[in-house]
Simulated assay, not measured.
Amino acid sequence: MTTPGPMATPGPLNPVSRTALSVAHVRALESERPGGLFTDPYARAFVTAAGYTPGRQPGPYALSLANYAVIRTRFYDDYLLGAVADGIRQVVLPAAGLDTRAYRLPWPDGVRLYELDLPPVLEFKERVLAGQGAGPRCERAALDVDLTGGDWGSRLAAAGFDREAPSAWLVEGLFVYLTGEQAAGLLDTLGGLAAPGSRLAHERGRDVSAAGAGDPSVAHLTSLWKGGLGTGLGDWLGRHGWHVETHPLDAVAARYGRSWSGTGPDMAGFHLSTRG
């Protein structure tokens, strides 16, 4: 498996937003692999439209990041489908990036999915999906918001989100790019919108101070990492009304018939939390 490097951008994307193309590249490779853990029929179109070409030869940490992204994608697919199977009908994806779950997952009737991201990301995404003739398999609303400032919660409510009904939230690959203050602010807003019984999934908090050390092929990514709330993320959630379940990465990988032998102890797995 190759791993993403610096790439041509499809427009005025900021450095963090450009990482969505790296993840799309990984999803495309996994979708084309026999026995892949998921199929994303649109990932390759994003890569092609962006004029993406792989960067330098990937080092061990880069390969681990790619394998981690594959396992993470399938784990979150199952989490969301489990939430709607249990009756939740509101799904929110902050920093949705080039996520295509609205288009590729088998949603039951009545699901409304909200994608939140910056305007250039959503504009590029809409352009590529339109070119593919893609149509969402649930009711979808895309909102251009800045999750690090402004009243994005009110924008979500104005778009039809019901604060009184439970919701399923997926914060995929975002917290590591935020400061602790930004992460806490996002979670405060999210918590104010999440009715009792709501669910939240994201990566476990981690110490990124030495992430990717000795592997120059990931420097363009790790240089952007700020660490969020770090290893205290789960404790923060517990103090703010969430019941937190931890899913270690090796156990999740084994569930999908994959062995986890990646480098990097900071890739520790996932949290699934329920609002009390």
Rank of each mutant, 00 (worst) to 15 (best):
S198C: 06
P4M: 01
M1E: 01
P196W: 07
T2P: 14
R239Y: 02
R140V: 15
V47Y: 00
A28R: 07
G35A: 13
R239E: 14
Y42K: 02
P106W: 02
R72Q: 13
E123K: 14
S261N: 15
G153D: 02
L37G: 07
G153I: 00
Y52S: 01
G97E: 10
P41R: 12
V16D: 07
R258L: 11
D266P: 08
A168H: 01
T9F: 10
L118S: 14
G97C: 12
V23E: 10
F270N: 08
G135S: 15
A168R: 07
G82Y: 06
P216M: 06
A195M: 09
D250G: 03
R44I: 03
H220M: 13
V91K: 04
D86K: 11
S217E: 12
G238L: 10
L174W: 14
Y61R: 08
T246H: 05
Y52D: 02
S217C: 12
A184H: 09
P4G: 03
A43N: 07
Y103N: 10
A102S: 13
G192C: 07
R140T: 15
P166F: 07
Y61V: 11
G230S: 06
G269M: 14
P12W: 05
T179I: 05
G110M: 04
V208H: 11
R56M: 13
Q182P: 08
D78C: 09
T246E: 11
G5C: 03
F175E: 06
W236Y: 13
D86F: 00
L13Q: 04
A96G: 14
H247A: 12
S64F: 05
G232T: 04
E30R: 01
A83P: 01
G59V: 02
P248F: 08
D235Q: 07
A95V: 05
R127H: 13
W236L: 04
R101G: 11
A66K: 02
L122T: 14
G82A: 06
G197I: 04
S273M: 14
D188G: 15
A157Y: 00
L200N: 06
T222H: 11
R204K: 15
A159T: 00
V26R: 02
Y256R: 10
E115G: 12
G241T: 05
R74G: 09
G51C: 00
G131K: 09
V176T: 14
L93Y: 10
V26C: 04
G135M: 13
E172L: 10
A141S: 15
A28T: 00
P12A: 15
L80C: 00
G228M: 13
P216H: 06
L170I: 03
Y61Q: 02
E126R: 15
A159N: 00
A158K: 09
V128E: 06
M1S: 04
G51W: 01
P108Q: 04
P196C: 06
T48S: 09
L147C: 08
P248E: 11
L200S: 07
W225M: 15
T39G: 08
A43L: 10
L143Q: 10
R89P: 04
G36A: 14
